[in-house]
Design a protein around this nucleic acid. Structure first.
Length: 282
DNA sequence: AGCGGGACCTGTGGGC
DNA sequence: TGCCCACAGGTCCCGC
């Protein structure tokens, strides 16, 4: 679910509530949610108890929580949450009871007791504890592409190439980390590029426009606290507002905001894709 | 190499 | 009201 702007918004919301807090208890309600070296419920619990949160950040669509260093170097240095389609991370006061879809919860204390819930209706999401070493054994992590907001135009053009559909490249987390279906469609519309165009057939000037458009759409969405379609809420339970600014995503059969022709829908790169045949002719 | 389809899951909304 | 089907923001794996 959440793409880069939504995960960024969640990280910003959680940061003030979590940094400096110490985990004093944890519960795993769905055994498959923790993954990796400390996936087992008991080792997960033992590895997080007593850990103080140092940093809350993001890489691609992963929400990262780092712990303060401890003497025991065999313990994890942090945990990575992938929210997939329906994952949510919220903080609550000490009295909040487990929800229907709560998969993992943490109890925190510094001054006031509070809780962090990882809820996920469809259960595709996961949390993975990691050490410096185990990160290197995690292919999803080691193969993540660069951050789309940090890559320069020149490097962007070098990565968006080949005979695949350009939308497939934007969605490929090895090529760029954090772009999903919404922002791929919005950026391609903005740059006036057909989502099914082979990357190598797209003129260099259009690739430069796409680099600009992608960064603009991501930044604008972050400024609006992300997009809320159905499940997504930020760390405080608030909906984002960027969905009100969609120009193509979710607007099948509605008029193009540029040329008024009816927007087209197709399955491209395995995903529902909305675009304007007239404006995105390249 | 790159695609299409299926799998992993539950919830929701539309049509009848 | 209720049932059935299609579809959903992500990723991985398989076979063609």
């Amino acid at each position: 679910m959440p793409e880069l702007p939504e995960v960024e918004t969640i990280a910003r919301g959680l940061r003030p509530a979590l940094v400096g807090q110490t985990i004093i208890d944890s519960h795993v309600y769905l055994a498959k949610t923790p993954e990796g070296e400390w996936a087992d419920t008991t080792s997960f619990h033992n590895a997080v108890i007593g850990r103080t949160i140092k940093k809350v950040t993001r890489r691609g669509k992963l929400l990262l929580i780092y712990f303060e260093d401890v003497e025991n170097t065999s313990l994890p240095i942090g945990m990575a949450f992938h929210l997939k389609m329906t994952g949510r991370l919220f903080t609550y006061d000490a009295h909040e009871k487990k929800h229907k879809h709560t998969r993992v919860s943490f109890t925190l204390q510094k001054e006031n007791i509070s809780q962090l819930f990882f809820d996920d209706a469809r259960t595709f999401g996961y949390v993975r504890l990691f050490s410096q070493e185990s990160l290197q054994d995690w292919p999803f992590w080691t193969q993540l592409g660069p951050e789309p907001l940090e890559i320069c135009a020149e490097d962007f053009c070098l990565r968006i190439r080949g005979r695949r559909a350009i939308k497939a490249l934007l969605l490929d987390q090895h090529v760029l980390a954090g772009v999903g279906n919404i922002y791929a469609d919005e950026a391609l519309f903005s740059a006036r590029i057909h989502p099914n165009a082979k990357a190598d057939d797209v003129p260099h000037t259009k690739l430069l426009a796409l680099h600009q458009a992608l960064q603009a759409v991501l930044l604008q969405s972050i400024a609006e606290c992300g997009s809320s379609i159905r499940d997504y809420r930020d760390a405080h339970g608030n909906a984002g507002a960027f969905q009100n600014l969609f120009r193509v995503y979710g607007r099948s059969n509605q008029p193009c905001m540029t040329c008024q022709k009816i927007l087209s829908t197709a399955k491209i790169a395995g995903r529902t894709t909305v675009f304007c045949e007239h404006c995105q002719n390249q």
